[in-house]
């Protein structure tokens, strides 16, 4: 990549656009230090991530939620175990982990699937679990690399609404996509890449009808009305 310079303010919603091979995934990997830049700087909260010692990289990643096209859930573990992994290694006890997992899954409308295995869920549900996993530690930044790439159009819109809702609560969202319809519907800042170069940086108006829609998990709503606590 070369000639790529931009700054995202806290709470921003930005699309990273470009054809396959344009460098979207590479740019995202540079942000969460999966790759290191040969030159230049990537600053996250003012800190040059390339200068973070290898041993400290996990602490950077705990502040950045990452969502992938292929979900990357651990198939052998339940939804609770998948999203509760980070709290677990942070030393959060089981009851608190369950509460956190329940709350986060409720945000994505899947509180009732806590004990399911990933393969028992649809593609859209798996992606919502992946988003929940990215959100559980309340990251300041949420990065998504083609999060709707494996989903049908209806599920894709559902996931896109979820990102808008998450952004509405103050999380900075940087979303890589090659689908222009999302950009048109959701709006926000659009960074265009072409063969590793930043070739466009503009702001598109958001369509208000999309933002007003939210995902509601009926089971979770019922449970919340009954007790307000997880039952697992």
């Amino acid at each position: 990549m070369r000639d790529v310079s931009f700054k995202l303010e806290p709470g921003a919603f930005a699309f990273l656009r470009g054809a396959s091979g344009a460098g979207k995934s590479t740019l995202l990997k540079l942000i969460y230090r999966e790759l290191e830049p040969s030159s230049g700087q990537v600053l996250v909260n003012g800190r040059n991530v390339a200068l973070i010692p290898r041993k400290k990289v996990p602490f950077l990643r705990r502040t950045i939620g990452v969502v992938f096209q292929d979900f990357r859930l651990i198939p052998r573990r339940t939804i609770f175990e998948n999203i509760g992994y980070l709290p677990r290694i942070l030393g959060v006890g089981l009851p608190e982990r369950k509460r956190l997992a329940y709350q986060t899954l409720r945000r994505v409308g899947l509180a009732h699937r806590m004990n399911s295995l990933p393969l028992q869920l649809s593609g859209g549900e798996q992606q919502r679990v992946a988003i929940a996993r990215a959100l559980i530690n309340q990251p300041e930044i949420l990065i998504a690399d083609e999060p709707t790439g494996n989903l049908d159009p209806e599920l894709s819109w559902e996931i896109m609404r979820l990102f808008v809702e998450i952004n509405g609560k103050g999380t900075t969202v940087l979303l890589a996509t090659h689908d222009p319809s999302f950009v048109q519907a959701v709006g926000g800042r659009v960074l265009s890449l072409d063969r590793g170069r930043l070739v466009g940086d503009k702001v598109v108006e958001r369509q208000s009808r999309l933002v007003s829609i939210s995902v509601v998990d009926p089971v979770a709503s019922d449970q919340e009305a009954d007790a307000g606590e997880p039952s697992s």
């Binding site: 996990p58 602490f59 651990i74 992994y85 980070l86």
Partner: peptide, 15 residues
């Protein structure tokens, strides 16, 4: 793959 996910969410080498 599981290990890659662990790294991604912020697991240290110790874990």
């Amino acid at each position: 793959d599981e290990i890659a996910v662990m790294r991604l969410v912020g697991a240290t080498e110790l874990y």
